[in-house]
Nucleic acid binder design. Structure first.
Lengths: 180, 180
DNA sequence: ACGGGCATGTAACTGGTTACATGATTCA
DNA sequence: TGAATCATGTAACCAGTTACATGCCCGT
C-alpha cells in the first residue's frame, strides 16, 4: 500500500482536506505508518496531476483546500482492491534479512544477533499482551488488529529464530569437527 | 538491512568486485532480494565516498575493480551487528496494511480482499510445502531458511485473517441491525 | 564469427523522509 | 497575549528500481 492508495481509499468516503487525511491515514493504519503532513500534500499534488482527485472549490472559509476523488480515481482504487499483491519476490523483512546475513556472513556475531533478536521479540510480545489485557478498546479497531497481527507474527518469528539457532550451533559443531 | 550493510557484510569476508557481490548478495538473502547490478556499483561508489571501502589497485587483468572493506567500514558493520533494529514504528507490511484499510474503508471490498488474501496465502503454503519435501537442499541454506520463515509467517497471517473476517462479519451484522 | 555470460557503469525516476517556512484559528 | 493546534506548502535528500550503453572473454 502506498500513501497514494491509502489517500484514495480515504477520499472515497467523501471530500477531505490534507491535514484531515493525515490523521485519518494514521488512524486507519493503526499507528504503524506515522505520516509527515508534507507528504500528504505532495501526494495530493501528484494525484491531482494524474487526474485522480480534484479540488472542490466549494467556497471555503480560508486557505483550506478540499479534495474529492474523481471517476478515474475511483477506478484506480477499485483496481487496487481487486489486485492481489503478487508475493514475488516475497516481501523483505528486516528481521529475516539480518538474521540470514548473520548466519552465513556474521562470523562471531551470528549467535548474538539471533539471541538478541529473540529477547527483543519476547519483550514485544509481553508488552503487547499487557497492553491488550489492560486496554481493551483504546486506539480503535485498526490498532487492536495491528496488535494481534504483531503478536501472531512475533510468535511465528520466535519459532523461526529457534530453528536458526539450531542451524547455527550445528554449523559451529561442524566447523569444530572439520578443524580437528 | 540496506544494500549498503549487506555489501559491507560480504566484503568483510574478503575483497570482491561488483558483479561478484551482486550474485553473493542474492544468494545470501535466499533470493528474496533480487538486485540490479547497477545498484551495486552506485552503492559501492557511495561506500567509497564515505571511506568504508577502498579499491585495491592490486594489478588487475582488465577493467575489474576489486573493493575491500576499510577500518571504518568494519566499524560501521560491527555497529550494525550490535544494533537492535528498534521496532518503532513496527515494520510495515503490505498484507496487514491493505486488509486494515479494506476493513475500515473498503466498503463492499472488505470481505473480498480478506478471502482473496487467504486463498493466496494457502496457495503459497502448499507450494512451499511441496517445494520443501521435494527439494531438500536445492538453493542453499539461506533459501531453505527463507522458505521456513515464509511458511511460519503465512500460518500466522492466516490465523490473523480469520480474526479479521470475524471482525468483518460482526461489523456487517451490526450495520444491518443498526439500519433496521 | 557471434552469442551469452561476465563486468562496469550512467541517467532518470519513484516514493518516502526530514526539515523548514508560513499563516490562521482557538483557547487559556 | 501567547502557546498549541490546525493547515498548507517547499526543498533537499536518500534508497531503491529500471533501463540503457559499453566492452571483454569464452566456447561453439
Amino acid at each position: 500500500m502506498t500513501v497514494r492508495e491509502g489517500l484514495l481509499a480515504l477520499l472515497h468516503e467523501g471530500p477531505r482536506h490534507g491535514y484531515q487525511l493525515k490523521t485519518e491515514f494514521e488512524a486507519a493504519t493503526g499507528g504503524v505508518w506515522p505520516l509527515n503532513v508534507g507528504q500528504v500534500y505532495t501526494t495530493l499534488d501528484r494525484l491531482e496531476r494524474d487526474g485522480l482527485v480534484r479540488i472542490t472549490g466549494a467556497g471555503e472559509s480560508s486557505a483550506q483546500k478540499v479534495y474529492e476523488i474523481t471517476r478515474e480515481g475511483t477506478d484506480e482504487l477499485g483496481a487496487w482492491w481487486e489486485a492481489v499483491p503478487a508475493e514475488d519476490p516475497p516481501p523483505r523483512d528486516e528481521l529475516m534479512l539480518k538474521v540470514l546475513m548473520a548466519i552465513e556472513h556474521g562470523h562471531q556475531h551470528g549467535l548474538r544477533v539471533v539471541t538478541r533478536q529473540r529477547t527483543e521479540l519476547l519483550a514485544l510480545l509481553q508488552r503487547k499482551r499487557r497492553e491488550r489485557t489492560a486496554a481493551g478498546d483504546t486506539g480503535g479497531l485498526a490498532a487492536e488488529l495491528v496488535t494481534e497481527a504483531l503478536m501472531a507474527r512475533a510468535e511465528a518469528d520466535l519459532r523461526w529464530l529457534d530453528r536458526c539457532e539450531a542451524v547455527l550451533v550445528e554449523q559451529q559443531s561442524n566447523r569444530t569437527k572439520g578443524s580437528k
